[in-house]
């Protein structure tokens, strides 16, 4: 037990190792080390940038489907105790429609796409090309929204796995309605069971000219956080001088 912890903390700060030795007898607390070292800013920046990329792709697919411009707000990464996360979102009572899509494979990740109810109705109206959302059959409404979620989360997933080479398999989407906080809390409970710190990606977007919008919320598992950061750092540490000369070479040949 001790050996593993010491190895994992090799690059960590002193405080981290001290805490670990204090709690080494409790198997529960060793899970704190399993996750990312949240004090390392570069790792968090990398995760935020990956999320940003995925959210960009997801909203592009939405934009393609609706033929409308989508405004994406600056994405955020919330790193806090699980029970403080709803406050950081600050959308407590907002009635929402949530599409949940678990990503499974070697590691797992939970992706939740939340639309305000009014916005979801309008989008259904646009997809099904009916004059009023009330004319749409409720089963049709449901599957239209589920399909929309599936396409957007697919965009998110392909962006991330193309870049890092992590294999993730999407499972069928699930649709649930309720207030914003109530939809989030199951995922926060899942994170609270294994760690004292939750890491949540928050990407807000909306159509131009509409007040309502949607939010892409991602809960990566600890293994996935580590894997993504490691793969990205491989990219960062790559020898780019070789690549530049290769490009120059092809450029000259074209000339």
């Amino acid at each position: 037990m001790f050996h593993i912890i010491v190895k994992m903390c090799k690059n960590g700060e002193k405080k981290m190792t001290e805490n670990v030795f204090e709690n080494a007898n409790q198997s529960k607390d060793s899970s704190l080390v399993k996750g990312l070292d949240t004090k390392n800013k570069l790792d968090l920046e990398i995760l935020l940038e990956l999320g940003n990329m995925g959210a960009g792709n997801a909203t592009t697919s939405l934009s393609d489907m609706l033929h409308e411009r989508i405004v994406v707000e600056v994405p955020k990464l919330h790193v806090a105790a699980p029970h403080l996360v709803p406050k950081l979102f600050g959308k407590h009572d907002q009635p929402s429609v949530g599409i949940y899509m678990p990503l499974r494979g070697s590691t797992d990740c939970d992706v939740l796409l939340l639309f305000e109810v009014e916005e979801a109705k309008k989008i259904v109206e646009m997809i099904t090309m009916t004059p009023s959302p009330d004319n749409v059959d409720s089963n049709m409404k449901r599957s239209a929204i589920e399909e929309l979620g599936s396409i957007m989360i697919g965009g998110f997933l392909s962006a991330i796995s193309n870049f890092t080479g992590v294999e993730l398999i999407p499972m069928p989407p699930e649709l649930v309605t309720g207030s914003f906080d109530a939809l989030l809390d199951g995922f926060l409970l899942k994170q609270a069971l294994v760690s004292d710190v939750a890491l949540v990606f928050d990407g807000c977007f909306r159509r131009t000219g509409s007040a309502a919008g949607g939010t892409l919320v991602v809960f990566p598992s600890f293994e996935l956080q580590k894997l993504l950061v490691n793969k990205s750092q491989e990219w960062l540490n790559r020898d780019y001088s070789v690549m530049v000369t290769a490009e120059e070479h092809t450029f000259r040949r074209v000339e």
């Binding site: 949940y100 699930e174 199951g186």
Partner: peptide
Amino acid sequence: NMFSNLKANSLNI
């Protein structure tokens, strides 16, 4: 038990 696919729910919190 909101999402049947959520892994934490297999423990039925």
